[in-house]
Amino acid sequence: MADVPQPRRVRPKLAMGLAGATGLGRPLLSFGFILTLWIAVTGAGLVPEQIFPSPLSVWQATVEMAANGTLATDLAVSMRRAAIGFGIGSVLGVTLGLLTGRVALVRALLNPFLTLLRPIPAIALVPVAIVWFGIGEGSKYFVVSYTVFLTVWFNTHHGMEYIPDIYLRASRSLGASRMREFLTVVIPAAAPHIVAGLRLGVALAFLSLVAAELSGASSGLGHRLQEARQYIRTDRMFALLIILGALGATVDLIVQWVGRKLVHWQQG
């Protein structure tokens, strides 16, 4: 068949420029835009500095916290809590998800109950956690791991339910034992869902951690945020919020990258 000339798509100039901004270009453009807006609003003096701090004072607050050492300590403490909570929650979540997906009895015993737990927000658990584990590390681990567990369990179980029947048929007619089928067919087939659950779990780990640190903690980014409220240090609050955002985004990128390596066969 002869080549039919395609009508040329004419794009407006601005869109053309945006399409050219690839990789880091796009986020930088967006950040630059918001930063300019921020400078303009605070520079115009419409809002008191103490309520809505300028980018410069937020930067200075960051430098201040970095210099007196609280930033590094808070980061380390919070990251440690998030990591341990995530570790416990995700191991439990994947294990139980594989069990409820595979063993009818476990499913019958646990699924209705776990499904009922899912809508309870993590913050609502903080008071219970404090009564049970005090304001130390225990309550943070509990809240984070509980939140991560439910999400990871749900996604793992969901992934197990949607394993294409044809994989199991192929595996059994090729003579695989149930154990080999479980390890080399069922788990990889559910892996894309499990990885998606872990990624959600990471985001929720930060969310629930800060919730737990806001009330009843003596260290960590969430605690520092609460402390800044007592001194009405909005510049510190903004600095901490931005750090939390950047931290969450970075970890999410890493998890996404690792996930893609793990389930390399999954396209799109």
């Binding site: 048929r169 192929a170 389930v263 999954q266």
Partner: peptide, 16 residues
């Protein structure tokens, strides 16, 4: 059983 092999229309290869 492995005595009865099956070839599926959708191949059923394990993509991993």
């Amino acid at each position: 059983s492995p005595d009865v092999g099956v070839i599926f229309q959708q191949y059923a290869l394990f993509p991993w």
